[in-house]
Simulated scan of single mutants.
Amino acid sequence: MRLHTAGPRSGLMRLAKADPAFGSPYWARPWGGGLALARHVLDCPESVAGRRVLDLGAGSGLVAIAAMLAGARAAWAVDIDPYAVAAIGLNAAANGVSVEATLADLTTGDPPAVALVLVGDLFYDAVLAERILAFLDRCRAAGVAVLIGDPWREFLPTERLRVVADYPVADFGDPAGMTRPAAVFALI
């Protein structure tokens, strides 16, 4: 897969200086949970084949793109950052797939019309983790399957999860060449 990422000559700092609303560019680098989840989807295409999937907090769109490459019927990538939504479009095009990218916060609404919700790296903050888990519980109650990729962050609700697969990944901010364990979980 190809992803547009931040680097010394990417021009990202010029963009940040030009837009006072520019936040942390979480979408500019792949994170460990998203890497594990994307790897799992590609290794186990039956998890997404023929299904409409939601990549919640999609960032770069890595997981949605992997889902489309693995045979998903449709992938909907949602993020709250307008730059992430733009990056999703660029990254999907770079991989020759179509991904519906949407700027929205779905966590306060009803479960979406999808068969599977894919969540990578959204358990790094207590308040966010609580909102995400409440939304995912509503999805599960509506019959929507949930897969979570995460490198065992502090606010991951491990007591509510079943490990599906383990992967060694390089997480955001780790020194070059370093890997850590990340897992793909099913919400139970």
Rank of each mutant, 00 (worst) to 15 (best):
V114I: 07
R180I: 08
P181M: 11
G61C: 00
V169S: 12
I188E: 12
A104F: 14
D81G: 08
V127F: 03
C44K: 13
G109E: 03
V53H: 03
K17N: 11
G149A: 00
G50I: 13
A74N: 04
V163F: 08
R2Y: 14
S10Y: 05
A170D: 01
A113Y: 11
L156V: 01
D166P: 00
R153F: 15
T107Y: 03
A84N: 00
L147D: 15
D125W: 08
Y124G: 01
R162F: 08
H4T: 07
G109A: 15
E46P: 12
A115P: 09
T102D: 01
A145Q: 11
M1Y: 10
V48C: 15
C139P: 12
G59F: 12
I188Q: 15
V127G: 09
L161H: 05
V146W: 10
D19R: 04
E130V: 08
A170S: 09
G7P: 06
G23A: 05
A165C: 01
R2P: 07
N91G: 10
T102A: 13
A170L: 13
A67N: 03
A66H: 00
R162W: 04
S24D: 10
A64Q: 12
D105K: 05
A86G: 09
L69T: 10
A84Q: 02
P8H: 14
V144D: 03
G7V: 04
A86I: 10
D110V: 09
A58P: 01
A72R: 04
L133F: 13
A186I: 05
P8L: 08
V144Y: 06
L133E: 00
D19P: 08
V164Y: 07
L128G: 02
H40I: 03
E130N: 14
A142Q: 13
G61L: 03
G177V: 09
G59H: 02
A126K: 05
I65K: 08
A18I: 09
D174M: 14
V63I: 05
A113S: 15
A16G: 07
R73K: 15
L56M: 05
R52G: 15
P45M: 00
V169Y: 11
L54H: 02
A115D: 13
C139H: 02
V114D: 13
I88K: 14
L156F: 06
S10P: 05
A70M: 07
G89E: 08
R52P: 06
P25I: 11
L128A: 01
A113M: 04
A74M: 15
V78G: 00
F172G: 02
L37H: 12
A70Q: 07
C139M: 03
V163Y: 02
G61Y: 00
P111D: 02
R131S: 14
T158L: 14
R73D: 15
G57D: 00
V78K: 02
R73G: 13
A186T: 07
R153P: 05
D174W: 09
A94K: 11
M178I: 12
G89D: 15
Y124D: 02
A115V: 15
F123E: 00
L116A: 14
